[in-house]
């Protein structure tokens, strides 16, 4: 299943947030969206999953999601959004409970996703007992349990410290290499974008327009081995964004 954004415009009141956004997310690729703070990248992600509606333009699903897919467009949030009163297992089963799946099947799915995210030993832990990285792993497990067609990630690593971020980035690369999931990944971190993105959409400051779409052909698994190239790509992105970021930083926030 592909997603396509057609001529998205969005206003909050009189303020234009996004202007003329067009791009596609093809099955099996990770599209990163980067841009200075306040450029509407998270808003764009909410349009993609149907949590908000753009003022004009449309988001199209092209093709239908696979049969086994319980929730085609599934989010992973920056603040994890785990229910603090449910255990790891309970948080994952939350996403399955409304689908009338037999108990044993739910058990099997939970076992499976816990294994894939290396969480098997933490099955009955409460969120408050887990570190930030573990919490985000649980959120990833919860997202995987519904067999998403597209993962929508809203700065998933931004609330984590840099060591944990590095570890989870490796995990995401491994996961993609094994499962070839489709994702739209919003971040303000250029290093994450060049490590994880097949396509990087660079937005300008408000009103957010597409500045450039950068494609990176190096396979995800090999990128860590060519640090020089990674650095060059990151520099290229930074040059695109530098002035925008500077200007965005000077703006007054009153929207």
């Amino acid at each position: 299943m592909d997603l396509s954004l057609n001529n998205i415009h969005h206003f909050y009141g009189d303020v234009e947030i996004l202007s003329g956004i067009n791009f596609e997310i093809k099955s099996g690729e990770i599209v990163c969206i980067i841009g200075p703070s306040g450029c509407g990248k998270s808003t764009l992600l909410r349009f993609l999953g149907g949590l908000e509606r753009p003022s004009s333009g449309e988001v199209l699903q092209i093709g239908s999601p696979p049969e086994a897919c319980l929730n085609p467009l599934t989010y992973i949030f920056q603040d994890f959004a785990l229910l603090p009163w449910r255990t790891v297992e309970g948080n994952i089963s939350l996403a399955l409970e409304d689908h009338r799946i037999p108990k044993q099947e739910i058990e099997r799915i939970i076992d499976n996703v816990l294994g894939r995210t290396k969480l098997t030993d933490f099955r009955s832990a409460l969120p408050r007992q887990l570190s930030g990285g573990m919490k985000q792993r649980v959120a990833i497990a919860r997202a995987l349990c519904v067999n998403p067609a597209v993962l929508l990630m809203d700065e998933p690593l931004s609330a984590l410290d840099s060591q944990t971020r590095e570890l989870l980035m490796d995990d995401l690369v491994d996961l993609w290499t094994r499962e070839r999931f489709t994702a739209c990944y919003v971040t303000h971190n250029l290093a994450e974008a060049v490590r994880l993105g097949h396509k990087i959409v660079v937005l300008s400051r408000r009103p957010g327009k597409i500045r450039e779409i950068v494609s990176i052909d190096t396979p995800l698994a090999d990128r860590k081995n060519d640090l020089v190239k990674l650095e060059q790509q990151q520099n290229h992105l930074w040059n695109l964004m530098r002035e925008e970021a500077l200007a965005a930083d000077m703006e007054l926030n009153d929207v």
């Binding site: 999953g49 949590l51 599934t74 949030f77 959004a81 229910l83 939350l94 409304d98 519904v146």
Partner: peptide
């Protein structure tokens, strides 16, 4: 953000009230 999470997983209105809002 928890309510939004519930919506993003397609939970029904009553599930969101019982499992997220009430607790």
């Amino acid at each position: 953000s928890l309510i939004r999470m519930g919506q993003s997983f397609g939970l029904s209105w009553s599930s969101i009230v019982r499992k997220i809002i009430f607790p």
